[in-house]
Design a protein around this nucleic acid. Structure first.
Length: 272
DNA sequence: CCCACGACCTGCTGGC
DNA sequence: TGCCAGCAGGTCGTGG
């Protein structure tokens, strides 16, 4: 589930039930996720109030009144479920963390592949945190545009698809939206990243289209995430191998190829 | 610095 | 029916 739009929608759900509420109880049902939980994880949170619930790339950040921030990542399969006060407690095998909040809500972290993680760091040191330090610009912020993208791609010889997955280039894109953005921008995923920039590192026309496409697909996905969604029709290329390209007048057939071990879906006709 | 690759986990699908 | 390979929306550490 979780690329930037899905993480953002989880953030909004958690914000409603966590901000202003206090951790009454924190239960760890195992000692680790991808990494061990930090020392005294539960006791450092218990009794503290959540001041803010923000997001950086695919990371969720819960700032606690203690001066610590809870850093959470959903990995490939992580998700939070919110249960209202009084709901019967039903814990599954892959429910690893339970927060009982003063609002009465119970928040359960489920992650069957366990690629997610949680860490607790002093809020003042958040920007130095190993996972957050090297992140590139937020794609939906004003600081991300064609010029930023071109500069980041300038000296990279890897394929543009690979560059888009590099969180230092742009923070929060994953396999699905990288592929969707490239299709929307009519840019081939196999082009070298450096071909989006001029010799001096300025944006070419393709960089302008790609930066705009990245913003568009992410914003669109966040909008949709709020509604009860039909999975069908969510994507224009992802998982559509063998089907017709949806670009008007194109008529190509969507193909699938592996790049760095991950599926790339693209239209060989309109993406150049 | 850049880049490729394997590791970490479980579950589902499709082919034989 | 069972079994097994391949694949799944992410990141990190280790090499060259």
């Amino acid at each position: 589930m979780p690329e930037l739009p899905e993480v953002e929608s989880v953030r909004r759900a958690l914000e409603r039930v966590m901000v202003g509420a206090t951790f009454d109880e924190v239960v760890l049902r195992r000692p680790d996720l991808r990494t061990p939980f930090p020392e005294a994880f539960a006791t450092r949170l218990t009794g503290r109030t959540v001041v803010a619930l923000t997001r950086r790339a695919k990371y969720l950040l819960a700032e606690a009144s203690s001066g610590d921030s809870l850093v959470m990542h959903l990995g490939m399969s992580g998700d939070f479920r919110v249960e209202r006060a009084g709901a019967p407690l039903e814990i599954g095998v892959h429910d690893h963390v339970v927060f009982r909040m003063s609002s009465g809500a119970r928040i359960v972290f489920n992650d069957y592949r366990r690629f997610g993680f949680m860490d607790l760091v002093p809020t003042a040191q958040l920007t130095n945190h190993a996972s957050l330090r090297a992140l590139g610009p937020e794609p939906l912020s004003a600081s991300f545009d064609a010029a930023t993208l071109a500069r980041a791609c300038h000296r990279r010889r890897v394929a543009i698809k690979i560059a888009l997955l590099d969180q230092r280039v742009v923070a929060g894109l994953g396999n699905i939206y990288a592929v969707e953005a490239l299709h929307r921008a009519r840019v081939s995923p196999f082009r070298r990243a450096s071909t989006l920039a001029t010799r001096s590192g300025g944006p070419r026309e393709s960089a302008v289209r790609l930066a705009a496409a990245i913003k568009h697909v992410l914003e669109h996905a966040i909008d949709r995430a709020g509604r009860a969604d039909d999975r069908a029709g969510r994507f224009r290329v992802y998982e559509r191998a063998g089907q017709r390209c949806l670009r008007r007048g194109c008529g190509g057939r969507i193909a699938r190829r592996l790049q760095a071990g991950r599926s790339t879906f693209y239209c060989p006709v309109c993406q150049r």
